[in-house]
Each structure stands twice: as structure tokens, then as C-alpha cells.
Design a protein around this nucleic acid. Structure first.
Lengths: 218, 218
DNA sequence: GTCTATAGAGTGATAGAC
DNA sequence: GTCTATCACTCTATAGAC
């Protein structure tokens, strides 16, 4: 967690804590939309306040400043991001693990497209506010996943021509694409936005190509 | 006398035209870096001018306003984007076509990462300045590519389980990922940025998984 | 706790000297 | 063609009334 919202509450504060919680949620949701659409610099506190239905000074009351609000939004997203892939081991069946992981990532793109877009924008523009996230720990976590994939290869469960790290990148990129580039996808398919059926077809095609391509499927 | 004046002016104009061309290139290159890193709203004319080594009023001299400059940068990028996939037909060999296309897209990510990032940011934030690009024509072009893929499937050259449109999305997302998310990739691999070898391994892994996954490889 | 009013910093854009 | 000086505007952030 990058930014901890001050949770210290006196007895008096607890009585009104419900309103605080409610307003914070309103603001965070509005901020998510605004940051996703305009980026950090393009988003204005005014517009966020208007979207949230609150006067703009309230945002400064609940969050110290614009950057604090942005970090809070980003922290929420990174918590969501946290890892359905963390507990795999070399004994697992790669076909099953990869299938579940791809389904989860596609579901995430469908459910939280704004979160995915803010995450993507932050990385594209240099990830200056995620230095903590992309730390030594991140590399260690990533290496752990790669090591399991390598075990699968050593056991002949996965094609040796597959570079484990890049298989992971492939799953990330293909699944997140449906959130981040949904406008381009919609234009290609000539509809206002990708619908549930498109997501289902995407999922099946991705699972087929990736599993078969890795040699875990006939 | 008129002749003499004309001659003099055209010589002068020609000389100045060279400077204009030169300065425009300087500004466009600086703007590309700035827009890629900060987004449209975050980029400032001041910072672009500083990067280009010119006073900021010159930018307003060469380009009408900030949006004009942004559109100019975006147009350059869209020209670059234009289509190594436009001339394929059902008679071609899918293995060959897909291999070449993936190599080209990876090379593009390696050579023009900034262009890729600006393109991605523009789409993520709503593509409001690319309405013309994502037009009926775009859908028509896309449908044409899909139709060729479908012919390959009908001829048994490609697995029937592959949804053509989503195979295209897959190639776009996986290859562009190496430009757009290179910071995350670098963090995962624990190096300052992906190097030539990483791009080569990425290319081989993508080609292997996608070709084999589509059933065009043993 | 809420909101109005405003200060203070920074931006895009332009006029006019050179 | 180039560049300095400046305008008009918008934005974040805060002080202080309620």
C-alpha cells in the first residue's frame, strides 16, 4: 500500500465516520473516472468534485492534495491487482493454472477497466509514483513465478521454446488489452464497446492459442 | 529589377525553409518525448521548447497552438503505423505472414517506443483526437484482414477455434506491450530497460506460441 | 464538518522590438 | 525570422465564515 489513509478516529469522529467513509468512496470513484480519462495533469479537482456531487474544498479536506488523492486511487488499484498467481508450485498442472489465470485477468479487464487504464497510464508515463511497487520485492516475486514455469519446462510439461518471463508478459498484455484498448477494439468490431460475448470469445481464443502454443494442449 | 528581387527572395526563402524544416523537426522530436512522458495536459510548451533548445514563442510560430502541435505529432505516428498487413490474401501462407508481421511489430516497439506510448495513451484516454482514424474505413480495413484469416480457417490452414479478430488483437497487444510497458518489464527482469536480447527472445517466444497455438506449426 | 471566497503559481498565447 | 515581455486565464490550495 503506497498511501495509508489516516484511520485514527476519536470517539467523536467515529460517530460521523460513516459520512466520511461515504464521501471518500464517492470521491475515489469520481477520481478514478477522471484520472482514467484525462490523466493526472488533465484531471481537475473541480471536475472530480462535480462528478462526486461535492464542493471542491471537501476533496482537500478528505485528501491532503491532488497527489494524495491520486496515490489513494492508485493504491486501491494495486491492491486489486494483487496476485492470483502467487501460490502456484511446480507440482500444479500448467493447463489448469494458466486457464484460471487467463480467466481471472479477462474478468478483471471486464470488471475494472478504469483501474486497468490508470495502471497502464501510470506505467506508460514512467511509473514515477510506483517506485515502491516495482522494487526488489517485485523482481523477487516475478522470479519465483518464472522459476515455477521453468520447473514445468524441465518436467516436459511445457515447450522448451517458451521463455517463461515472456509467457507471463504475453498473458498480461493480451488480457489487459481488452480494458486499455477497448475503444480501438470497439472501432474494429464496429460497435459502441466490446460486449459480454466478445469477452467470452476473447477468453476462449486466448486460452486455446496460449495453451496449445505452450504445448499443454493436444 | 523584378526578376532580381524575386530571385533574391526565393534564395532567401529557400535558405529559411531549411531552417524551418530543421526547427520543426527539433520541436516535433521534443514534443514526442514530452507528450509520451506527461500526456497532453501534462506537457508544457515551455518544457518542449527547453528540450528543443528554442524559445517557447517559436513553437507558436511554427505550430498554431498546443493542440496543433499534438495533432502533428499524432499524425506522424499514425503514418508510421500504416499497415504492413494491408496486402495479404487467402492464397498466402499464414505461417509466413504471421511471422513477418510479428517481427515487424516487435521491431517497431523497439525502434519507436515513444510513438507507441503516445498512441496507447491517446486510445486509453478516449481517442478523442483520432475520431477520423477510427472511422468506417478502419472497420472496413479490419474486416478485410479478418476475412483473409477466415479463408485460412476455411481452408484448414488455421485452427477453427481461433477467432480471427482476437488473433489480431493478440498480436497487437503482445508486441506493443514491449514498448508501452517496458518499465514494468525492466523491473520484472531487474535491468534498467529491456535489451536487444530480450527483444529477440520475446520475438521467438511470441512466434512459437502464436503459430503453434493457431495450428500452423507442428 | 461544510462551503465560499480568494490567494498564489503556472499555463497558453500574443504583441511588438529586434 | 527570432525572441522578450506580458496578458488573460485556469488551476490547486487554503483561510475563515457558517
Amino acid at each position: 500500500m503506497l498511501f495509508k489513509i489516516d484511520s485514527h478516529q476519536s470517539q467523536k469522529a467515529r460517530r460521523v465516520g460513516r459520512i466520511r467513509k461515504q464521501n471518500e468512496t464517492l470521491i475515489l470513484r469520481a477520481a478514478e473516472e477522471e484520472f482514467a480519462e484525462k490523466g493526472f495533469a488533465g484531471a481537475s479537482i473541480n471536475a472530480i468534485a462535480h462528478r462526486a456531487g461535492l464542493p471542491k474544498a471537501n476533496i482537500h479536506y478528505y485528501f491532503k492534495n491532488k497527489m494524495g488523492l491520486y496515490i489513494a486511487v492508485l493504491s486501491n488499484i494495486i491492491d486489486l491487482w494483487d496476485e492470483p498467481l502467487s501460490s502456484i508450485s511446480g507440482d500444479d498442472d500448467p493447463a489448469e493454472v494458466l486457464t484460471i489465470y487467463i480467466r481471472q485477468k479477462i474478468a478483471f479487464s471486464q470488471e475494472y477497466p478504469l483501474a486497468s487504464r490508470i495502471f497502464a497510464s501510470e506505467i506508460i508515463s514512467g511509473a514515477h509514483n510506483m517506485k515502491d511497487y516495482f522494487s526488489e520485492d517485485y523482481h523477487r516475486w516475478f522470479s519465483g513465478r518464472v522459476a515455477v514455469f521453468q520447473q514445468w519446462i524441465d518436467q516436459g510439461k511445457l515447450d522448451a521454446k517458451v521463455a517463461p518471463a515472456h509467457l507471463l508478459f504475453m498473458i498480461w498484455s493480451t488480457t489487459q488489452h481488452y480494458a486499455d484498448f477497448s475503444i480501438q477494439i470497439a472501432a474494429a468490431l464496429n460497435k459502441p464497446s466490446p460486449d459480454v460475448e466478445d469477452f467470452a470469445i476473447a477468453e476462449e481464443t486466448l486460452i486455446h492459442i496460449i495453451l496449445k502454443g505452450c504445448g499443454v494442449l493436444a
